[in-house]
Design a protein around this nucleic acid. Structure first.
Length: 786
DNA sequence: ATGGGGCAGCTTTTT
DNA sequence: GCTGCCCCAT
């Protein structure tokens, strides 16, 4: 084993040679964590641990694949279990399905499936979505599941209004999943966690089957994952976890950093190893990361250091707008590649939101530079693929209601919304799957004769296809396409603009099934294929080999490294995201997110800010991220955008120049009474902003004295009241609960108000029902508050 | 019942 | 700027 450990540093060796008992590896970025983990597996195998007793759990398939590849180099062909938490649970659940009321051929609903199911459950529960969107309800339920809360548990508690509504939907949703013999992503964890808790025999069985458990990115575990790992490490507490509290970026979906912070309390006699030395980044980059992360209050102090010689300074660059930013970066990359020092796959561009990749994509295309977007529109989400997959799902699991719903009238066969609704009601009433209900179509009241015939036809087709369930996937899918005349349908209904050739997608899908058949000559069940498809994420498609530039979100970047990194949109409301800065802990998570991004860079790092950015359509001025002030600005190379009056005038016109000149270059708090309300902890300090302002003010008109109007669109807006009375009623007077009068409908109460600008719309409850009005045009007179 | 057009809402991040 | 929904005309 000397060969295995001799090239390791002392702390790395400590971790690698530790076999029995709990082990905590606190690994800073670039500290050789994967190397340690993989060597450790090899070392265990070398010391006689059976590969079947080891399970290594990750969060992404990408991480699991990487680990497998590297273990395989050290110890070829060993059947150590490596995969994601979700896959681990999915496989256990196949075996123990009956324990939680499922059958072994259960289906995994992907997020769009769950969304459909959620809507149906909301309707069935008789809940109005006026005050709470399906997405909000879904998120409440998801969080409850991550906390291992059952419907009953959720019911009894004091809850926020949103949670209270969700608590009513939760049991209905869950019942419908059970009827459909299906689970959502959260259920995979929840079912296993509960199974382990409620069934000591199963727990003991699995605990001794997997005597050695390893968890990667332990700082991202949620309560369900914690409980699972814990339950599997009671009789054999050989649990090794690795992680970095500073890289905890999944709090928003229930991850709890305390799991790693309290690990030493949870597991007595734990061996703790700290890997702090960085083998990845230049000192410049590391200092930037370090100074930034030091600003987090809730944090364990940690040193980041390296032997790597001093490199190029970190660059902080300002661009006019998102397009200039994209062009500038792509040009920069093209230059560096032309210089011969770098290849395209040495570069990565990170952003906070997927939406920001759009302008970049454009720039890459126009320059014919190869790129890949990790996590864009997913192949398996395309319509054709979802349709065919739905057939496969329904064949594999006839109870799969979401698939039934998708397939029953695809291709169109004269079964409309009303018919489907009747089938659904019948199914709900008898608590049976929809396909079964459809088989009883004859006895469903109110179904038109025609509808009954059409349903019968569908059932015939379905049964015929089903008979092929056990042939190869390729056969099956080709048979489905043929029997349903899917090609005719898809050609006929193709929307010209986006998909020129939808059948190409179908062909690609068939190719994927051929590959699956080839890889699974014996065990290639439909089940396995569908599970595989359900559990691959967009981010798994990252490919570091081919020469292209990588575009991805900061979240997706974790665990990777690139010689040259660009982080775009380091702006307020982006990092930190506008929806993640209301609490201190959200804010600190955003800081960690930027920390993760920075620490991906090996040699070159550029952060960029725009003066203005197009946010869903309209152009808005930008405030630089407060995090920029937390960087070692003295040693950072700042490049400002060159600006001219002409440019500004062209873009904004006079009104905007005076009225809403980018408030970004104002110091928040100075002449901006509303800023800081509610988030006092977030104060943008002067340094960065002033330096930018100084520069900008040489070329652009000075900032206005008055507070700029945040939404110029509203200023010229006539309200309904204006039209009637000539008085000036601000649109803001129209609020939920306000009573209004309409010439046709009489008096009514505003139920809710949505939208902005000219789209701003009020929904009003009158005696004769609900009506919606655009506030800009409606003849609504204010009567008063209720 | 179908398909198109228009409209509302929204977009953080992922298994 | 895109998607999913609703309503309308066929």
């Amino acid at each position: 084993m000397d060969a295995l450990t001799k090239e390791l540093t002392p702390p790395q060796r400590d971790a690698v040679t530790h076999i029995d008992g709990p082990l905590l590896i606190l690994a800073g970025p670039g500290s050789g964590k994967t190397r340690v983990v993989t060597h450790r597996v090899a070392n265990m195998l070398g010391h006689g641990v059976s590969p079947f007793q080891i399970a290594a759990l990750t969060f992404t398939n990408k991480a699991a694949d990487e680990m497998r590849a590297r273990v395989d180099k050290l110890a070829p062909g060993q059947p150590v279990w490596m995969g994601t938490f979700h896959r681990f649970c999915a496989q256990r659940l196949r075996r123990y399905a009956s324990f939680v009321g499922l059958k072994e051929n259960y289906s995994i609903y992907d997020s769009s499936d769950s969304k459909q199911a959620m809507k149906r459950a909301i309707a069935a529960a008789g809940i109005s979505t006026t005050h709470c969107s399906p997405d909000q309800i879904a998120s409440s339920i998801s969080k409850a599941k991550n906390r291992l809360a059952t419907p009953e548990m959720m019911e009894g508690h004091a809850l926020s209004p949103q949670d209270a509504i969700a608590a009513k939907v939760y049991p209905v949703y869950q019942q419908q999943l059970l009827t459909a013999n299906a689970v959502d992503f959260d259920d995979l964890l929840l079912h296993i966690a509960r199974l382990l808790r409620e069934n000591p025999e199963v727990r003991g069985e699995l605990d001794s089957k997997y005597k050695y458990i390893m968890v990667d990115e332990y700082q991202d575990t949620n309560l369900a994952q914690y409980a699972i790992v814990r339950a599997l490490s009671i009789d054999h507490p050989n649990l090794a976890v690795t992680g970095d509290p500073d890289q905890s970026i999944y709090g928003w979906r229930g991850a709890d950093v305390n799991n790693i912070l309290d690990f030493e309390k949870d597991y007595p006699n734990v061996k703790t190893v700290r890997l702090e030395k960085n083998y990845r980044s230049t000192p410049n980059i590391l200092r930037a990361a370090d100074e930034l992360i030091r600003h987090n209050q809730k944090r364990k102090q940690k040193e980041l250091f390296t032997d790597i010689p001093e490199g190029d300074p970190v660059v902080l660059r300002m661009y006019e707008d998102g397009y200039k930013e994209a062009d500038g970066i792509v040009d920069d990359i093209a230059d560096k590649i032309a210089g011969g020092q770098y290849k395209a796959n040495d570069f990565a561009i990170f952003c906070r939101m997927n939406a920001l990749t759009r302008s970049l994509e454009h720039a890459f295309r126009s320059r014919a530079l190869p790129y890949q977007i990790v996590g864009g529109v997913e192949f398996y989400q395309r319509r054709e693929i979802k349709d065919l997959l739905a057939y496969l799902h329904l064949i594999n699991n006839p109870n799969h209601d979401v698939a039934f719903h998708r397939v029953i009238n695809t291709p169109t066969r004269g079964i409309g919304a009303k018919t489907i609704e009747r089938i659904r009601d019948h199914a709900d009433h008898h608590r049976i799957p929809m396909l079964e209900a459809a088989r009883h179509a004859q006895s469903i009241d109110g179904l038109a004769k025609r509808a009954k015939t059409m349903i019968g036809k569908f059932i015939t087709i379905y049964d015929r296809i089903s008979k092929r369930a056990t042939s190869s996937l390729e056969d099956l899918i080709r048979y489905v396409v043929e029997e349903t005349a899917y090609e005719d349908y898809v050609e006929k209904t193709a929307t010209e603009q986006q998909d020129a050739n939808p059948m190409a997608n179908v062909d690609e899908f068939i190719t994927a099934t051929v590959e699956f058949d080839r890889q699974h000559p014996d065990d290639g069940s439909l089940d396995l294929f569908l599970e595989q498809v359900a559990l691959v994420a967009d981010t798994d498609k990252f490919d570091s080999e081919t020469e292209r530039v990588t575009l991805m979100t900061l979240h997706a970047a974790k665990g990777l490294e690139f010689p040259c990194v660009y982080i775009i949109g380091v702006e307020d409301d982006l990092i930190p995201h506008s929806r993640s800065k209301s609490t201190e802990s959200e804010f600190e998570e955003e800081r960690r997110l930027l920390f993760v991004g920075i620490t991906r860079a090996m040699q070159n790092l550029q952060l960029s800010v725009c003066k203005r950015r197009a946010v869903r359509g309209d152009i808005r001025p930008v405030i630089p991220s407060p995090f920029l002030n937390e960087l070692p600005l003295g040693e950072i190379k700042r490049i400002e955008a060159a600006t001219s009056y002409d440019y500004f005038d062209d873009e904004f016109g006079d009104e905007l120049n005076q009225d809403s000149y980018p408030e970004s270059w104002d110091l928040p708090g100075e002449n901006d009474p509303e800023s800081g309300s509610g988030d006092d902890d977030i104060v943008l300090e002067k340094s960065v902003v002033t330096s930018f302002v100084d520069d900008v003010s040489q070329v652009a008109p000075p900032p206005p004295k008055a507070k700029p109007k945040p939404k110029p669109l509203l200023s010229g807006l006539k309200t309904g009241s204006d039209l009637l009375s000539g008085g000036v009623t601000p649109v803001t007077a129209y609020q939920e609960g306000v009573t209004v009068r309409h010439p046709d409908h009489g008096e009514g109460t505003i139920v809710n108000v949505t939208g902005r600008g000219p789209k701003r719309t009020a929904k009003v409850q009158f005696e004769d029902g609900e009506h919606s009005f655009r506030l800009a045009y409606a003849k609504l007179e204010l009567v008063g508050k209720m």
